[in-house]
Nucleic acid binder design. Structure first.
Lengths: 336, 336
DNA sequence: CGACGGACGTTATACGTAACACTTGCTGGA
DNA sequence: TCCAGCAAGTGTTACGTATAACGTCCGTCG
């Protein structure tokens, strides 16, 4: 590991302190109450810090048969959303002496690499976003304890799931737009096959079917500004009456839509109301600021980690979806 | 690890294939040319996949004394920039059989947690952004091979450095703005103590001092839309002649500045030209699209990983800074 | 006065893997 | 005929740690 000399081991510490290796392990592992005298323990601690001793984690992991390391599989790191999920998960993990390793699954539909080859660390369990579709089959192959983020509770075959209440978010969006008087909707959907996006489509359709005179069209785009720009441009150029409200599957799509709307010579929200979903920093960077659904990504990560800890300890994980809330800003207004 | 039964070991595979554990290790380690016959090797491979054998990485790491795992220390994951750095580093790492583990240092000036507590995996080396100032002292304490990203080549005490040619980027920005006719500049600087930001300030000052009649003022803000908004608002409200060009340390700051400029009733670029640095997705999401300096974050990550591999193998790392390029968009124009 | 138990440690072992050193059977050349 | 040499493996060990099981010394109690 180190350059010239090899790193000190617990045996080196033992020798320096004049005790056995076992005593070092006891003292440094904090299991010495009544087994080692205080002066001796102090000698061990001094020797350890003197030598700059750090336990060899590979050896410890081997001995204990567990690693206190967990893998977080995310679709791709191009959005700050999963950065915050990571932050939340890592905080809870640290409180329990665990570490979190990230595996960003390759973008697009590339060949599914082995997620565990990238995370060389041995693992106690896995938290996986259902959006990281490529990696899922490989993950299911392993018998590791698994928590799924935003995945169909029915279809997850026993794996614990932690979900944001996206359906409720879409309900709030729909009610907000209906209350403003909108009746002609365009849904800009993400073209990733994932349960969480199916929920958006289903819930939006459900909420509108009850209301007379409503109309809903759907277009799909990859989750990128460029992709959303092109899809929206095409939709706006299509013949027929223009919709008055554009519901986007996430904020990034909304940002792309803004550009298409500007290029078409139209204005948000005067000609077209737009909503997003995520409430990323992007939502307030664009003009007008975006009406969107606020997801608490950090809480999502925390809940995911807690669920995994529960599974590891044989406890049942918390039930219930995480609440979300509509944030009304300047991108929605009554139709003209 | 697994729920009920324990995972199969190489010994289990050996028994199933009717060979010794050593033979399994040879076959699966691909070191069997001339040592094990093809039929036997095939029997071993079949038994391994039959049992779903996966080597215990903790044991392997212990035995080999190296982990093929590397730590990437980044300031915080709130921007896609380091996501791309990670992508590049992970790709190169994978090509060499290495894995990359991420350590996002806590935001702000919180107490420096131990980066290695979070990355429970044992490590062969570290790549660290100089912006992750909190974690640096802890990192230097370990004797691990280290590569610094965007750090002072002089002040890094022997650690290898990989740098983007930020100075050249700022030169291009300055020349672009001077050529447009600007003479009164405002520098919106990041208030993070990091060499890479010092370079921006120094280079900008240098480029302007040669030109007669120029004026440069500097304000500082935390790297967030909100922070930039407030700092810019204050600067625009200050008495005296208004600058005609606003040079921002990165794109996020520029996005915040846009908002302040709009609130002041001014327009980009008519009243004020704005430049950024990074070329994130954000740069084209805002209106008008941002003139900025394109940094190839993925190449940065790749180069960082290659440098670390070189250090690990005792080779000298590549020299030379990575080139950057000015991307001129709609946020810069001649002053009125 | 013998036994007993607490305080303070030590010895020995196992975790799963990779690699070195060694064995065995066979072939071919002198 | 005999031995070198090779193919095809096997036996054994060490990596560094945590912990179960075992000693030893001494004070105390019945």
């Amino acid at each position: 590991m180190a350059r010239g000399s090899t790193r000190p081991t617990s045996r080196d510490v033992a020798q320096a302190a004049g005790v056995s290796q076992a005593a070092v392990s006891l003292v440094l592992g904090d299991k010495w109450r009544g087994r080692v005298s205080e002066p001796t323990a102090q000698r061990v601690r001094d020797a350890a810090s003197e030598l700059g001793y750090r336990p060899n984690l590979a050896a410890r992991n081997l001995r204990l048969g567990r690693t206190r390391t967990v893998l977080l599989v995310v679709p791709a790191l191009t959005t700050e959303f999963f950065a915050e999920v990571y932050t939340g998960a890592a905080r809870v993990a640290a409180e329990h002496g665990f570490g979190v390793v990230l595996y960003p699954s390759p973008e697009g539909v590339g060949p599914a690499r082995d997620p565990f080859a990238s995370a060389q660390a041995a693992l106690d369990g896995v938290i996986a976003s259902s959006m990281a579709a490529d990696a899922l089959s490989a993950i299911r192959g392993d018998q590791l304890p698994l928590v799924m983020l935003d995945s169909d509770p029915e279809g997850s075959l026993g794996a614990a799931t932690v979900n944001l209440d996206i359906a409720d978010g879409i309900r709030q969006v729909a009610e907000h737009l209906l209350a403003l008087g909108h009746r002609s909707f365009l849904h800009l959907a993400a073209d990733i096959p994932s349960w969480t996006f199916e929920v958006r489509a289903r819930e939006l359709a459900t909420r509108l079917t009850g209301v007379p005179g409503t109309e809903l069209r759907t277009i799909r785009a990859p989750i990128s500004i460029e992709g959303a720009l092109r899809a929206t441009e095409a939709a706006l150029a299509a013949p027929g009456p223009r919709p008055t409200a554009l519901v986007c599957d996430d904020d990034k799509l909304a940002a792309g839509a803004y550009k298409a709307i500007r290029r078409a010579g139209l204005r948000v929200p005067d000609d077209l109301s737009v909503t997003g979903l995520d409430d990323l920093g992007l939502a307030t960077a664009i003009d007008p600021e975006l009406t969107t659904v606020r997801l608490d990504a950090e809480a999502f990560g925390e809940r995911g980690m807690r669920a995994l800890l529960a599974v590891l300890e044989g406890r049942p994980p918390e039930k219930g979806d995480l609440p979300v809330s509509l944030v009304v800003r300047g991108s929605t207004a009554p139709p003209r």
